[in-house]
């Protein structure tokens, strides 16, 4: 068959059926052809589950639709990966499904791209963002106006000053992932633990004080702790610390050296029945080898679920209010 194909001479229901045979990444490309294709792709009603934008020396947009997800790299000059990103200039995109960059017939700047993606994939929820080294080139005021409502932010490899600036400008943030501690003074990061984010993920060294100051409902400490530090934390919790905590994740290296007796030394606990364990694992999407129940002084129950995997003991501390 010839290379050219007069798609738009076909009845609209056939065009729609052709589009339904295309993956969302290809639909994005065809939606850039004309206002007609944009409206046809939008009419398919594909709803993005999540949109994640990472800022560094360039910008990447990750779009997830149902089980399909893909990454779009945006650059002013597709051939120069290190050029400074100019938000006002035309931007072209590239993705894995295509071995060459693409852009709409009328050039888009970053804001146009974002508007287009949000419209075509019917996305109205807050956007998740990531700030990495190189993201300092993006002016905070512009970021705030462009991204508007941000729910989840990942911050990694940027200065403490920039971190504070981000947090000051995105006040509605619900979830924060700190890839590293950006502050020299340990008190500074504790100010973030005290904030009432719904969830905080911290990927750096932390102390017992940090654990006790965590005021979020969900806390995930990615770096390993010691069995002693965890044991002391549990004792503090029993006495009433971390009143908002619902779920805390920890890991302990060299799990061979950590027995259940050592981990729970001095803590009054009892085994959870097999059936209840399965139910808890299912509800919280976890895998556990061993689960014990404890109670704090006011009667609030919690379980400590552990899973030994590749000589790392993964601990999930779940509170049931």
């Amino acid at each position: 068959m010839e290379l050219a194909f007069p798609l738009f001479r076909l009845p609209e229901n056939v065009i729609v059926q052709v589009l339904q045979n295309m993956n969302p990444d290809r639909l994005l490309i065809i939606s850039l052809v004309s206002t007609k294709t944009k409206s046809l792709v939008t009419s398919l009603g594909l709803k993005a589950r999540n949109i994640y934008i990472a800022f560094y020396h360039e910008v990447s947009i990750n779009v997830n639709i149902e089980r399909f997800g893909w990454n779009l790299m945006l650059r002013n000059d597709p051939n120069d990966q290190n050029a400074e990103f100019d938000i006002t200039r035309p931007v072209s995109a590239s993705c894995l499904c295509l071995d060459k960059p693409f852009q709409p017939s009328t050039p888009f700047n970053f804001n146009d791209w974002l508007d287009h993606i949000l419209t075509v994939f019917c996305y109205t929820k807050p956007i998740d963002v990531e700030f990495e080294p190189g993201s300092e080139q993006f002016e905070m005021e512009w970021l705030k106006n462009t991204l508007k409502n941000v729910d989840f932010a990942t911050i990694g490899g940027v200065t403490g000053i920039r971190t504070k600036e981000i947090l000051k400008n995105f006040k509605d943030l619900n979830e924060l992932f700190l890839r590293n501690n950006p502050f020299e003074d340990s008190c500074e990061v504790q100010k973030l633990f005290i904030e009432n984010f719904k969830a905080i993920i911290f990927n750096d060294v932390y102390s017992l004080d940090d654990m006790l100051l965590a005021n979020s409902e969900i806390v995930n400490f990615r770096r390993p702790t010691t069995h002693k530090q965890f044991n002391r934390f549990v004792k503090h919790w029993i006495r009433g610390s971390n009143p908002r905590l619902q779920c805390m994740s920890h890991r302990i290296n060299n799990s061979d050296s950590v027995s259940r007796e050592v981990l729970l030394k001095g803590i009054n606990c009892f085994d959870v029945a097999e059936e209840e364990q399965q139910e808890i694992c299912q509800t919280h999407g976890i895998i556990s080898d061993d689960m014990v129940k404890i109670r704090r002084k006011d009667g609030t129950p919690a379980v400590i679920a552990t899973k030994d995997f590749e000589n790392i003991l993964h601990i999930r501390f779940l509170v049931f209010y």
Partner: peptide, 16 residues
């Protein structure tokens, strides 16, 4: 239409 960027698609689907 696979493997085509926007400009190539415009050529292929020959807008009416």
């Amino acid at each position: 239409l696979r493997g085509k960027n926007t400009q190539e698609m415009i050529k292929v689907i020959t807008l009416p």
